[in-house]
C-alpha cells in the first residue's frame, strides 16, 4: 500500500440504548484513499458524518464494519481491528488529531500541554519544551501565557494550543476537525502555512473545513459525503 490511509466499506451507526434503542446509521460503505502529500477536505452538510470519519480513523469511534488501513512504521495497521496498545502507538507516532475542543489536565501550563506530544514520542523534556514554545509563538500565543493553564484562555487561544500540540510533531497523518473555526484572519494564515508545510513534507491530511475560503486555500481534493440512508 502506497497510500497513507485506505478506508474501505466503512459503516458506523449509533444505538442509543437509553433512548428507546434508537439506531442512527451515519456511515454505510464509505471509501477513501489518501496519498502522502494530499489534503482531502470532507464536505457535506452538518450531521452527515464528517467528524465521524475522522474519529473512526483516530479510533475513538469503533467502526461497525469495514477496514481503516493506516501506514504505520514499515507496515499498515487496521485501526478498526487492531488492539488498543497498537492504536496508542499509531496515535503517538503516526496520526495527529486536532479535535474541535481542547481537552487537557486542568492547571497544566500551555507549553507543557504542547510539549507532552513530543515527550510521549521520546523527546528530551528540555528540547520538547523549547519546541513547544516555538510553536506557540508561531501561533501567536504570547510568551506571557505559555506558563499558564489553557483553561483560562479565550476560545481562539485554546484552539491554537490545540493546533500547537499536534503541529509541534511531524505526524505522517493529520486529522483536522474545523482547525480554523474560531481563528481570526492572521492566525488562519498561520494554520494555512502549517498545513501546506505538512503536506509539503509528505503528510496525508484529512480535514473538515466549514469555510469555503479555507477549503480552497488548503485542500487538494474535496470528497463529498452523502447520507447513509441514501447510500445504504
Amino acid at each position: 500500500m502506497t497510500a497513507a490511509i485506505e478506508i474501505g466499506g466503512l459503516a458506523k451507526s449509533f444505538t442509543l440504548h437509553n433512548q428507546g434503542g434508537v439506531r442512527l446509521p451515519v456511515l454505510a460503505g464509505f471509501d477513501l484513499v489518501v496519498e502522502p502529500g494530499e489534503c482531502v477536505a470532507l464536505h457535506g452538510p452538518s450531521g452527515i458524518g464528517k467528524s465521524t470519519v475522522l474519529r473512526c480513523i483516530y479510533a475513538n469511534y469503533r467502526a461497525d464494519r469495514g477496514r481503516i488501513l493506516v501506514r504505520h512504521r514499515d507496515g499498515t495497521v487496521d485501526m478498526a481491528a487492531t488492539h488498543p496498545r497498537r492504536i496508542l502507538a499509531v496515535r503517538r507516532e503516526t496520526v495527529g488529531h486536532v479535535s474541535q475542543f481542547l481537552r487537557a489536565v486542568p492547571r497544566v501550563a500551555a507549553e507543557d500541554v504542547v510539549a507532552e506530544t513530543l515527550r510521549g514520542r521520546g523527546a528530551d523534556p528540555e528540547a520538547a519544551t523549547k519546541a513547544a514554545r516555538r510553536m506557540l509563538r508561531r501561533l501567536n500565543i504570547p510568551a506571557a501565557l505559555h506558563r499558564l493553564a489553557p483553561a483560562t484562555f479565550s476560545g481562539g487561544e485554546q484552539q491554537r494550543v490545540n493546533l500547537a500540540r499536534v503541529f509541534v510533531a511531524d505526524y505522517p497523518v493529520l486529522l483536522l476537525d474545523e482547525p480554523t473555526a474560531s481563528l481570526d484572519r492572521e492566525n488562519r494564515d498561520v494554520v494555512f502555512e502549517l498545513i501546506r508545510e505538512a503536506a509539503g513534507r509528505g503528510a496525508a491530511i484529512v480535514g473538515i473545513f466549514h469555510d469555503a475560503e479555507v477549503r480552497d486555500a488548503v485542500a487538494t481534493r474535496t470528497v463529498p459525503l452523502t447520507a447513509a440512508r441514501e447510500a445504504a
Binding site: 513530543l118 514520542r121 521520546g122 523527546a123 528530551d124 528540547a127 519546541a131 509541534v168 510533531a169 511531524d170
Partner: peptide, 11 residues
C-alpha cells in the same frame, strides 16, 4: 523536527 531520543523512554 529533530527529536532527541532518550533511552529510558525508548524502553
Amino acid at each position: 523536527m529533530a527529536v532527541l531520543q532518550c533511552n529510558a523512554l525508548q524502553l
